[in-house]
Simulated assay, not measured.
Amino acid sequence: MANSPQAKKRARQNEARFAVNKARRSRIRTYLRKVEEAIASGDQTAAAAALKETQPELMRGVTKGVFHKNTAARKMSRLSSRVKAMGA
């Protein structure tokens, strides 16, 4: 248990940070799910549009420290290749 004032403040800050990061992660997952659903429906234009919306959100997550840069790049790469394969 936090006893010193600075440890108590740290605990409060960690809780606030956790809540913000959790909301960000959830928001990004929602965007990723929209792309997945568009791919599953077989609509390439909808999938491409959803992917275009997802990319900045994913990169914002990297900037804010929610995701690692390579993780975001990998997710974007895999999704974009799946969307591209739909056209073929």
Rank of each mutant, 00 (worst) to 15 (best):
A2V: 14
A2P: 02
A2F: 08
N3Q: 03
A7L: 07
K9I: 15
E15Q: 13
E15N: 11
A16G: 13
A16H: 15
A16R: 12
A16C: 13
R17K: 14
V20A: 12
K22T: 05
A23L: 10
S26L: 02
S26V: 00
R27G: 15
R27Y: 15
I28H: 08
R29W: 05
Y31K: 10
L32H: 12
R33L: 11
E37G: 04
E37D: 13
E37F: 03
A38G: 07
I39T: 09
S41M: 01
S41L: 00
G42V: 03
Q44D: 09
Q44F: 10
T45W: 00
A46F: 03
A47R: 09
A48M: 11
T54H: 07
P56G: 08
E57C: 09
E57S: 08
E57M: 09
R60N: 07
G61R: 02
V62L: 06
V62T: 05
T63R: 09
T63A: 08
K64A: 08
G65Q: 01
T71A: 14
T71M: 10
T71H: 10
A73F: 03
R74N: 12
K75M: 12
S77D: 00
R82E: 07
V83Y: 09
K84L: 04
K84T: 12
A85E: 13
M86I: 02
M86R: 04
G87E: 07
